[in-house]
Design a protein around this nucleic acid. Structure first.
Length: 368
RNA sequence: GGAGAGUUGGCUGAGCGGUCAAAAGCAGCAGACUGUAAAUCUGCCGGGCCACGCCCUACCGAGGUUCGAAUCCUCGACUCUCCA
């Protein structure tokens, strides 16, 4: 059976309206994938998540490897069965933890040694072990094991890191087996010559899709946009393109316009827990005193259960009192907002109006 | 009635002659968050200003000692504990 199907249905400039086919359903692109690191989109039950309608979510190899461990997940029937999720799952390879947990890991040619952030125990991730874990969990899309370098390193250091990622990409591909699709990851930091070389290398390999990694790691917004705008058009048109870890609603619009098909980001879920809510009128910091007696809905233009059920005043009350329901309501809204945004984007591409959709969206954002 | 302890910024609570506009926590106000070590982190938090320095008002109240007092003394007010 084919690991992954992808067809482009329509284009609007560089933007693509497409469809991914997986063993766990079809995915309309451009798509936003909520992040569920520990086999859970934080603060939502599987049922609540399902009701929001995402067609694919993320899980994380490093975190699930530590707890509960791949043996257990495999024994219980794989990642889908474990979390009762019958739609698609993509796993990050642990490459991001090479970056985010840089203080507790050692990087070698062979792979990365991690001291568990939980109990300090030693764990090893390499292209071979990462891909094996992802495949044993039975995910729909696995990611190559890469080194996500920090921003601020030199051209030479970035080049060395990129070349390691390339060697690891070949090793990742060499152990692909079974039904999981495998995506390669382009690196190269903020250096265009390296990004170009990285695209050439990764695109020459038999990956099922290609991701742009190593962005939003500390560089400026303009640097990030510059790199995305430069790199995306270099990617092969026939494969799905995934911009890893991005981003804000505006970033999604920019990414789509550049030709990206897939996004993931912790922003809607993490910000929800921190009381920062995305709305059609701009960001709402729900803890602000001005919402204390605001009887209106969080976002008057949103039809999620949060916006149709409770007031801003109540949401603020829940949040300032650390009520668990605050996380639930906030997360439902933010994820819903992101999914709605992508729905609007797909529609706009279909009617060749992405540009005006973007302008309209952003002009309302500035009113707050 | 007797003996003792205490009264500090919205609250709890450090301080025991100068480096105190006063620790710390909480509350309050605001900000950040981009392949999740995050229900986390950061800043502000007496007032004022020509604002990275200066001025004013401050540690229950009133006096006093001292070059200098939240800190020592006197008197007063109030609170608490124990014994009758």
């Amino acid at each position: 059976m084919q690991r992954l199907g992808f067809e482009i249905l329509h284009t609007d400039g560089a933007a693509r309206r497409g469809r991914l086919t997986t063993r766990h359903g079809t995915i309309e692109t451009p798509v936003f994938m909520p992040v569920g690191t520990l086999a859970s989109v934080k603060s939502l039950t599987t049922e609540q998540l399902k009701a929001l309608g995402p067609e694919i979510i993320l899980n994380n190899t490093y975190h699930l490897m530590l707890r509960p461990g791949v043996d257990l997940i495999e024994k219980l029937g794989g990642a889908h069965a474990f979390q009762s999720w019958d739609r698609a799952i993509l796993t990050d390879s642990g490459g991001f933890q090479v970056f985010s947990l840089s203080s507790i890991r050692k990087l070698r040619e062979e792979g990365v040694e991690f001291r568990s952030h939980i109990d300090g125990s030693l764990h090893f991730l390499s292209p071979e072990t990462s891909i094996d874990i992802q495949q044993r969990m039975g995910v729909d899309i696995a990611m190559a094991f890469d080194e996500c370098p920090a921003h601020g390193i030199s051209h030479d250091e970035t080049e060395k890191s990129m070349e390691l990622t390339h060697r690891w990409a070949r090793r990742s591909l060499a152990v692909r087996a079974g039904a999981s699709a495998l995506f390669g990851i382009v690196q190269g930091g903020i250096y265009k010559d390296l990004r170009k070389r990285s695209v050439e290398e990764i695109a020459s390999l038999d990956f099922d899709g290609i991701a742009i990694g190593g962005v939003a790691v500390g560089e400026s917004k303009s640097e990030m946009l510059e790199i995305i705008g430069y790199t995306t058009p270099l990617l092969p048109a026939e494969k799905p393109r995934y911009l890893m870890g991005v981003g804000t609603p505006e970033d999604l619009l920019d990414g789509v316009a550049a030709g990206i098909d897939m996004f993931d980001c912790v922003m809607p879920t993490r910000n929800a827990r921190n009381g920062s809510l995305f709305t059609s009128l701009g960001k709402v910091a729900i803890k602000n005193a001005k919402y204390a007696d605001d009887p209106g809905p969080l976002d008057p233009n949103c039809s999620c259960t949060t916006c149709t059920t409770v007031s801003r005043a109540y949401l603020r009350h829940l949040f300032v009192n650390d009520e668990i329901a605050a996380h639930v309501y906030n997360t439902i809204h933010n994820v819903s907002f992101y999914l709605d945004l992508m729905r609007g984007i797909r529609q706009a591409i279909g009617s060749n109006s992405l540009g005006s959709f973007r302008d309209s969206f952003l002009s309302k954002q500035t009113t707050l």
